[in-house]
Design a protein around this nucleic acid. Structure first.
Lengths: 143, 143
DNA sequence: TAAAATGTAACTATTATTGTTACATATTTG
DNA sequence: CAAATATGTAACAATAATAGTTACATTTTA
């Protein structure tokens, strides 16, 4: 029914890394997100494979941004944290003997792809740096 | 991970009703969609409550469109067949003592709402009549 | 060498979806 | 009126995805 919270958590992680600017452990990040460190490590693993973060083992280790926050769009993060199609088509193949059943899938696919492209267009316009800036503005107003 | 197939099936049902223009039973529709009649009746129940179809009990009964196909947008169908937010935020409340945890939800919400609105804008532009027209064009090319 | 950290496997609990059977109820036709 | 046909919905099973958790091998640094 909904895009899972991995995307929201992935953005949270990247924004936190950008804000603090030093290696953060999965335990520390989990404290901010309020979840288990393994949940964070699972997502960090995706982000690392995608080249968004570098990780360092050992004492004083942790993850840092591998690219400037200005260059990481939310669309890239979305694509890393979600897989598969946003809209599901029929779970079973419709009846090929019915004109509607035989032809509806390509028709739906066209609309679904347009809708998803529109959604992705918005996500492509925002970067992690924008998110950080937004958070910092809120923090300022809270002083 | 994905919008469930209810939406696709709901559009299929409405397009089929528009194409045939006579009362169709859930059993008949299920034959086109290739699923169980109860699955169809569950979705018809949603469509009926939303005022898109009328249903008739008894022999020669079934469902018919309650509104012209030109007036039913895919967005309306989407809103009936889906509930809840498209994007999930964190499942647990992030740490309010962390500047990022305290402020990230409103920031994300703004972007998510913009993205969802863009998606809905595309769905609002297409009607069941457009879907039917598309299917009929394909049928023509198959003769 | 000890401490700290990652990466991942394995398991549980929860939830949503889909398909299925069953049945009470309503409606139409002969 | 009776039989046939439909709906609407409850109940249940199977499947899948998500999130949380424990555990542990491995790596790195101090």
């Amino acid at each position: 029914m909904s895009i899972n919270s991995r995307f929201a958590v992935a953005v949270h992680i990247l924004a936190l890394l950008a804000l603090e600017g030093r290696p953060l452990s999965s335990k520390y990040i989990a404290g901010s997100v309020n979840t288990n460190p393994v949940v964070i490590r699972r997502i960090l693993s995706l982000l690392s494979k995608a080249g968004f973060v570098d990780t360092q083992l050992g004492v004083e280790g942790g993850s840092t941004l591998a690219r400037p926050a200005e260059t990481i769009t939310l669309l890239e993060v979305y694509n890393v944290s979600e897989q598969g199609q946003l809209f599901a088509l029929h779970s079973n193949q419709p009846n090929p003997l019915c004109p509607c059943g035989r032809n509806i899938k390509p028709t739906l696919l066209t609309v679904f792809q347009k809708a998803e492209a529109a959604l992705e267009g918005i996500l492509a316009e925002a970067t992690i740096a924008d998110v950080v800036q937004d958070i910092e503005a809120q923090v300022q107003s809270q002083l």
